[in-house]
Design a protein around this nucleic acid. Structure first.
Lengths: 345, 345
DNA sequence: CCTGCATGTGACAACGTTGTCCAGGGCCTA
DNA sequence: TAGGCCCTGGACAACGTTGTCACATGCAGG
């Protein structure tokens, strides 16, 4: 009765341990360990007896205890903004695939674009002693990670650079992509182009805005401040922003959407209008081909894969100054970006 | 030098432990533990000294060791088919959200629809001593989980029932949903309706097929075996299947797509045809409203939330026979399902 | 027959934390 | 002022595993 609850607070029904296996097999504890870990120096006969005991008891090695001894957990943490965002699915999957190749498990968390929650997650991962971290930053100050990094937790930032610390980062070329997208609209005759982006504290949002301004400047086009809108990507806000830019005779004739969520809402808004408006969006979208949406495409899976590979190189001992990798984007023409401005525009 | 590598195999740069903190603060080990865990019985002055030492050393509690002592890991494992599939993003996010409410972390893994890989992941999670498991089954035999469940690992299956063991499961009403979708097509005048689904070993695939047959039988319509195709959901296969069903004067006038991936390919195939073909798909898809795709929608987030809540009820001690929860689906009319058959059809 | 060596095996400490238990000191009451 | 209690703090064992080391045994060679 009493020994039926070695862990009063636990609901584990007393899982067998190596000690139990050893007792049943009539061997020493260490011999069981050797068998379980495939270490040499065990006679076939002993090994068989141990295997039988393992089988009979349903023993499974406790990796928590193992970790405590060995120091490595063979797991990495991934903090992203929202697992439900279609952009992060492929990224997450790519990270998982690389982790799997290295025999590591993936612990996931969504920050919901909240800096405190990001920190909370990251530190929880560190308490679990993950070997490494891949972080899509929500906050803009990552000095809280300094002791962790100093203690040996490899860390790679993705999609946006870390704030106030020097660390590895893998990015898409937001500036160049946006510049190319806006230049594409200009090349098709547009002179009044609107930009709707994410909140300005997000690095990619400002980079893309910078690309917009660069393209306009390249073509010597003025930018009316009413054509630019940064803020939440909620459908309501984006809708209001788009409609206000499009209103009136001097409204914009083309829109550049700063990310996938903005694009989706923009498509909905434009679908309800009579006069066609040109649209280029940052990020590709499923079924965009059928809807004829021209986009600047970034390869989310490549971002994840690159970051994870960099992380494991660090874990395998690669030293050196923090790397900054920038992946190219691609303009995919599907029609919406090739709509000319109206005759009088 | 020597003590700079207490763990020869570890890359942790000797993280400080409670012992180190205790030494620096000039208190006992247990006192540090009390402060870290917010236990009572520490004077404000002592607490301050300890906090300062923690701060100065960058100490962070090692949860691996904690877990070993306490028996609970405050983490749950989620095995699904593919994180990159848009259906699983919201599901995964919902699970994460519930886990967060219960102070647990989420460990993720994709089985890639492979039974061996599912088992490998599940057992790896068990070795980590996750408190609970949420599994979207890839395999059809889960007896390998019996010792784990007996040892107290709470387990909930989602989207498909477990194979050969009796366990909690949360499902969508695949049968009813498909039946309603096909009945909808019949109500709009179709008599020759094609069904393209996933591989027959997948429970939802056969359930949806069953729904298709039921709806046809309800209307006393014959089913030509050439109208039914189960198999891989790769675009190539689905395209071939769809084109062959649609070919000829006696080809089908409507298609029912068995899941989101099939629907996407079907839309692409149908977009290339002159004569309109009606389409209803299982699972909603982003932008389906703009494309006018009629779907049977299942609430992936609700599946995840329901499963996670059930899991935590089990962890909180809820006993009783395994539950089977079935969530309803909804028909969303958007146009593609309301296309009538051609005059002669 | 003893030495030397290889091989298989087990005893033991350690990993970092928490639960149990006990000691010392201050305070209250009789 | 003695006796009891509460409050704070620390010593110690235990969690389940692995690394180190030492002990048996067996066999070959001197």
């Amino acid at each position: 009765m009493a020994d039926n609850a070695r862990h009063p607070e636990s609901r584990y029904g007393n899982r067998p341990t190596m000690k139990d296996v050893a007792a049943r097999a009539g061997v020493g504890l260490k011999t069981v360990s050797r068998v379980v870990n495939g270490e040499p120096g065990v006679t076939p006969d002993t090994e068989r007896r141990v295997q039988e005991a393992i089988e009979a008891l349903g023993f499974r090695r406790n990796d928590s205890a193992r970790v405590l001894r060995k120091g490595r957990t063979a797991s990495i943490g991934l903090v992203l903004e929202d697992l439900a965002d279609p952009f992060y699915g492929p990224l997450s999957r790519a990270v998982e695939e690389v982790a799997r190749e290295h025999g590591a498990l993936l612990i996931n968390g969504s920050s919901a674009e909240d800096a405190d929650r990001e920190q909370e997650l990251v530190l929880a991962f560190c308490a679990r002693r993950v070997d490494g971290l891949i972080v899509i930053p929500a906050g803009s100050d990552h000095r809280y990670l300094e002791p962790e990094i100093k203690a040996g937790v490899a860390t790679v930032f993705v999609d946006r650079p870390a704030g106030r610390i020097d660390a590895d980062v893998v990015l898409s070329d937001s500036f160049g992509g946006a510049r190319a997208g806006v230049a594409h609209l200009i090349a098709h005759g547009h002179r009044r182009i609107g930009f709707i982006g994410d909140q300005p504290r997000i690095h990619t949002a400002t980079e893309r805005l910078r690309g917009y301004h660069a393209a306009m400047a390249d073509a010597d086009l003025p930018v009316d401040e009413a054509w630019v809108s940064l803020g939440s990507t909620s459908p309501e806000r984006v809708r209001v922003a788009a409609e206000s830019m499009l209103a009136g005779p001097d409204g914009v004739t083309a829109l550049f959407a700063g990310n996938n969520r903005v694009t989706v809402t923009a498509v909905r808004v434009l679908a309800g209008r009579e006069r066609p408006v040109a649209l280029v969006g940052f990020d590709d979208i499923e079924l965009a081909d059928l809807l004829g949406i021209t986009v600047i495409s970034q390869d989310a899976a490549a971002l994840g894969r690159t970051a994870a590979e960099l992380l494991f190189r660090r874990l395998d001992g690669a030293d050196g100054t923090p790397a900054r990798v920038e992946l190219p984007t691609a303009l995919i023409q599907r029609g919406s970006g090739e709509v000319p401005p109206p005759a009088g525009g």
